[in-house]
Amino acid sequence: MKVLSVVGARPQFVKCAPVSREVREVHEEVLVHTGQHYDYLLSEVFFNDLGIPAPDHHLEVGSGSHGVQTGRMLAAIEEVIGKEEPDLVLVYGDTNSTLAGALAAAKVHVPVAHVEAGLRSFDRRMPEEVNRVLTDHCSDLLFCPTATAVRNLAAEGVTAGVHLTGDVMVDALRENLPLAKERSTVDLPPKGYYLATVHRASNTDDPAALRAIMGAFARLDLPVVFPAHPRTQKKLAEYGIAPAANVRVTEPLPYFDMLALLSGARAVLTDSGGVQKEAYILEVPCVTLRENTEWVETLEDGWNVLVGADTNRIVAEAEKVAGSPRRHSARFGDGHAAERIAAIIAEYQP
Rank of each mutant, 00 (worst) to 15 (best):
G8R: 04
P11R: 00
F13T: 10
C16I: 11
R21C: 10
E28P: 00
E29D: 06
G35Q: 01
Q36P: 05
H37R: 00
Y40A: 01
S43W: 02
D49T: 08
D56R: 04
A76C: 06
E79G: 11
E85V: 11
D87A: 07
G93I: 02
T95K: 01
L99T: 05
F122C: 03
D123N: 11
R124L: 13
R125L: 13
P127I: 09
E128K: 02
H137N: 12
L142A: 09
V150C: 10
L153K: 00
D167R: 00
V168R: 04
M169E: 11
L177A: 04
K181I: 09
V186N: 10
L188H: 12
L188E: 15
L195S: 02
A196V: 01
P207L: 11
A209W: 04
L210P: 12
R211G: 00
A218W: 04
L220R: 03
P227W: 02
H229D: 06
R248L: 10
L253Y: 12
P254T: 08
Y255M: 08
L269S: 00
D271Q: 02
Q276M: 11
Y280C: 05
I281P: 02
E283K: 04
T288W: 05
L306N: 06
D310V: 04
V315S: 03
H328Y: 12
D334I: 07
A338K: 07
A342D: 07
I345C: 14
A346N: 09
A346I: 06
Q349I: 15
P350H: 10
